[in-house]
């Protein structure tokens, strides 16, 4: 299986939701968690761990992007490794930062490492970061987060 096939497995189409709204940060994290639960990647209790993590240390990573995920102990609530990408076109206040895209994570293993590495590169490139914030099609998101095969 190639790296990119593995990524497709991690990033289910049903978990790419690009026209979400949320009242506040907690609401946004809950929606992220629910997307992971809906695809069978995590138990409902994982959502509470995601909220707890966000309240202790923010997962905001810059360029309007946050990466909500659970705590160490909540790994037992993960059914399989998966990501969800939720876009909030109106923005969500995130402790003073404005978040437009959440990349939610449920991971016990390291299968998502390449994709998060690519996300870091996207965030370091203002133009690609802008494209991610503006993405309206799941394929746009997938293309931005797929590493080049030769790396």
């Amino acid at each position: 299986m190639s790296v990119n096939d593995a990524l497709t497995g991690l990033l289910d189409d049903r978990a790419i939701r690009l026209a979400e709204t949320a009242a506040d940060r907690d609401d946004a994290v809950r929606r992220c968690g629910e997307a992971l639960v809906a695809i069978g990647a995590a138990k409902p209790s994982y959502v509470d761990a995601m909220l707890a993590r966000e309240r202790s240390v923010s997962t905001y990573v810059g360029e309007g992007v946050a990466i909500p995920h659970g705590t160490l102990t909540s790994k037992e609530d993960i059914e399989r490794d998966a990501l969800a990408v939720l876009r909030f076109p109106d923005g969500v206040d995130w402790d003073g930062e404005r978040v437009t895209v959440c990349v939610a994570i449920a991971a016990r293993g390291d299968g998502h490492v390449a994709l998060l590495g690519e996300l870091a590169l996207v965030l370091l490139d203002p133009e690609r970061a802008r494209l991610l914030r503006a993405a309206t099609e799941p394929d746009d998101v997938r293309r931005l987060l797929t590493p080049d095969e030769e790396e």
Binding site: R53, S56, V57, T59, V61, I67, H69, G70, T71, L72, S74, K75, I105, A107, R108, D110, H112, V113, A114, L116, G117, E118, L119, A120, L121, L124
Partner: peptide, 18 residues
């Protein structure tokens, strides 16, 4: 290092590895 070792630390480790 981060709390769960699945999010922020993964992103930063990827950059540093590169």
């Amino acid at each position: 290092a981060c709390d769960a070792g699945m999010g922020s630390s993964v992103m930063l480790a990827g950059q540093l590895r590169r």
